[in-house]
């Protein structure tokens, strides 16, 4: 049964009384927890590096300079939004529209952020400000799983997942992709031009967790193509991205069959790069994020 999305998140004011603490648990428990976190992080890092490399190639193919590609990866630091931005720029989409779609595409992070709030409430404000910038689908999934296994907050564990597994591999690979891409003669001969649309489709598949998402994806594609043919590719992309969700919402909630509501660890795994599984523990379908840690 599909839940109200807000039920996935702890009420911020009430969860301030949870047992979450920045004090790490005793040595052996912490060591075992971090060992497992590192193992999980390695898989994420490999995937992030591979995907970052492809982003670098796509950015270069779209005419981004190395500085511009790296600025996206360090400042925006949002894989799907960055790939989308490449498509927007190539399609000639106006910047305000790019920013609107970027905001909408990344708005799900608000839910991850709210879900982490009880765990990080005792962390200093400057650290939390930095943690927020590094909060991605993968970082959230790694952190929330790690904290829950420990039963406590582990700031070092957060850095391992957010910096070691995602930020560094993503940015190093982006730089490699945008630099090496120039040494590949005639990229179309090697099928590099197909990587971008194929990656977009693959990422979309990872986001489809119910009938509403499926309908929204199909509607977005159809509307996008129709509007693109009638006007321009840029307008088509914007129209598909904004109107597709509206069509998806026509599917009644009772018939949506949502399997991974946004804001849950499972949704983070689905939003992360397909093929990456950060936690092989089965999650109970209606398991709340933090309340069970009390």
């Amino acid at each position: 049964m599909r839940r109200h999305l807000r039920e996935d998140l702890p009420a911020l004011t009430t969860t301030a009384t949870t047992s979450a603490s920045v004090e790490p648990p005793p040595g052996p428990v912490l060591q075992e927890g971090r060992r497992r976190l590192v193992v999980e992080s390695l898989g994420i890092a490999v995937a992030a590096a591979g995907f970052g490399f492809v982003y670098g190639l796509a950015a270069r193919d779209a005419g981004f300079s190395p500085i511009e590609a790296m600025a996206m990866s360090t400042l925006a630091f949002a894989g799907a939004a960055q790939f989308a931005a490449v498509g927007y720029v190539v399609g000639g989409v106006a910047w305000p529209a790019i920013l609107l779609l970027t905001f909408l595409l990344n708005a799900r992070h608000l839910l991850y952020s709210a879900a982490l709030r009880p765990w990080l409430r005792d962390v200093s404000l400057p650290k939390r400000a930095v943690m927020a910038h590094l909060l991605t689908d993968e970082a959230f999934a790694l952190a929330i799983g790690h904290f829950r296994r420990l039963g406590r907050t582990d700031v070092t564990g957060y850095w391992i997942g957010a910096i070691g597994a995602t930020f560094i591999p993503w940015n190093v690979a982006t730089l490699a992709g945008v630099l090496v891409g120039g040494s590949i003669p005639d990229p179309t001969r090697f099928g590099i031009d197909i990587i971008f649309p194929a990656a977009m489709v693959g990422l979309a598949v990872g986001l489809i967790t119910g009938r509403r998402e499926l309908v929204a994806a199909l509607a977005g594609a159809v509307i996008g193509v129709i509007v693109a043919l009638a006007s321009s590719p840029a307008l088509g992309i914007v129209a598909g991205g904004l109107l597709g969700p509206a069509v998806g919402l026509l599917v009644p909630a009772a018939a949506a069959h949502e399997t991974a509501p946004i804001g849950t660890p499972r949704s983070a795994e689905r939003y992360a790069m397909p093929g990456v599984h950060v936690d092989d523990e089965p999650l109970v379908e209606d398991e709340p994020l933090v309340e069970d840690e009390r």
Partner: peptide, 24 residues
């Protein structure tokens, strides 16, 4: 929240479809 959850699949599929099906 419901709308935002659908933005990702819609915008990514729109980009992919327009990229492979429409040329100027």
């Amino acid at each position: 929240l419901d709308y935002l959850q659908l933005v990702g699949p819609a915008v990514l599929s729109a980009i992919a479809a327009v990229t492979v099906m429409v040329v100027v």
